[in-house]
Design a binder for these strands. Structure first.
Lengths: 255, 255
DNA sequence: GGTTTAAATGCCTTTTTATGCATCTTTCAT
DNA sequence: ATGAAAGATGCATAAAAAGGCATTTAAACC
């Protein structure tokens, strides 16, 4: 074996050298490896395939990247709560281009904000920081936050300033997330939240109450509004479901 | 080995660089990316489409926006979180009980809000939904949100109403997250954000600029203020670091 | 050592991928 | 409303990947 021939590496050695190169530079091109290691690009490709299979590198078109160079995991969709998604789908059908919409907070509202199609051009007024952020992800949605003191409990802005601002608005739709709902109407347990919701209802042409069926037939201490002030009731259930029977005739539309 | 130091980027590398640029500046134009990365705008557009499909960015006409303000993104995923934590620790030492503090948005500010000790009794005025939520977790902190139109780009409230509200406030401290910073002063790329930040500076007795060192020596299109309007510059670096030398004497205190 | 056998490698052909360019359509700002 | 900028779409080209096949090489066995 002459000195010159000692340049020839065994497969294992070659792969170690590949890993070394990748760790050194974070990336490597197949063509460069072929030159450095004096083998055909086919061989390199096979090596990269093996190493990728062993999870030692990330193979990409044209070469490979270090694992630490890392791009990985798409952030998983956090709240794929099926019921709320169903509600969101129904709700979104009521929204038309050009509308002005008032919204409260709550996780159902968040699901709606999240599911909103990107091509809708609408204006939202909201008192919830969380919802405002979710809505602001949609490039064609204008979001107006009604400022004020942020309640530590409900995480929405409350107080006289907010209420008087809401009074100045005339919206097409008011979308409320509901905490308590029975034949008497909508109820809630937080005084300040109730003031805000009342103002919202007063300032909107149509009112949509959204809730998961679990919250139906529950009564909280403070009244927000009666059933005849509501135009739509949206749950995850089919409108024919027995649970919704008590509300037939009391609410204009049940979806 | 010089072969390896080619300027040709693999597709994935290029996409990583795009994400990096977006994290750094919150928004980016396709045309700028095309120049930086030396590929056609078509290719950039295709990259942005892919990244948007993977939910890593928000694509808009002309470029893309960061997703980092998404609430569902946990603190730990925020870009350069460790550095921002260091900044937060330094920042918090400047806060005393009873203070009134004006704050902008940004992930650095978020880290500060998060690290805040629970025994502090302070009042925060903020234009950022995300920060307001983070602050509202602290029982002894009063949070006032300055409402207005939420900018899709910067995810803070902007507009004349916000600015005039800020003008009515007299705060002890103004804490700014910075996007561009060089010897000329603070700069930003969004006209509306600049208006808000200017108002904040005017309404505060002392101004604190916080930024990760990566953003030092970057100049964006619009000027927010000059260096002599800043009282404190806080980065994750030690005050003696060479990168901070150019600012010695120009900013009152460097922490 | 020599023979056998399986693995490794290179080469060729066919697909697939990446990218830029030209053209047409949509969107945006004035 | 209208012109300019950005986006979508189809196409052409080049580079890379995949798979089959032939040859070489290593090592396993006698």
């Amino acid at each position: 074996m002459s000195i010159i021939e000692s340049k020839i590496l065994l497969k294992k050695e070659r792969q170690l050298e590949i890993i070394h190169q990748i760790n050194l530079h974070n990336k490597i091109l197949s063509s460069d490896l072929s030159l450095i290691l004096n083998v055909s690009e086919d061989t390199i490709r096979r090596d990269l395939n093996e190493l990728a299979l062993e999870n030692k590198i990330v193979k990409v078109h044209g070469g490979a990247l270090s694992k630490s160079y890392n791009v990985s995991a798409t952030q998983a969709d956090t709240y794929a709560y099926d019921e709320k998604k169903v509600i969101a789908t129904k709700m979104i059908k009521l929204i038309k281009d050009g509308m002005t919409i008032l919204t409260s907070g709550g996780t159902t509202m968040r699901a709606i904000a999240n599911q909103l199609p990107n091509n809708l051009h609408v204006t939202f007024f909201t008192v919830s920081p969380l919802i405002s952020l979710e809505l602001a992800e949609h490039p064609n949605v204008e979001v107006i936050f009604l400022g004020g003191k942020i309640s530590n409990i409900s995480k929405i802005s409350v107080g006289g300033e907010v209420v008087s601002k809401i009074n100045d608005i005339k919206a097409d739709l008011c979308v409320l997330g509901i905490n308590g709902f029975d034949q008497e109407g909508i109820s809630d347990s937080d005084y300040e939240v109730v003031q805000v919701k009342k103002a919202m209802i007063k300032s909107s042409r149509q009112v949509v109450a959204t809730t998961i069926s679990e919250k139906l037939n529950s009564d909280l201490r403070l009244r927000v509004c009666t059933l005849n002030e509501i135009d739509y009731l949206i749950t995850e259930l089919s409108p024919e479901n027995d649970l919704l029977k008590p509300y037939k005739g009391l609410v204009k539309y049940i979806l």
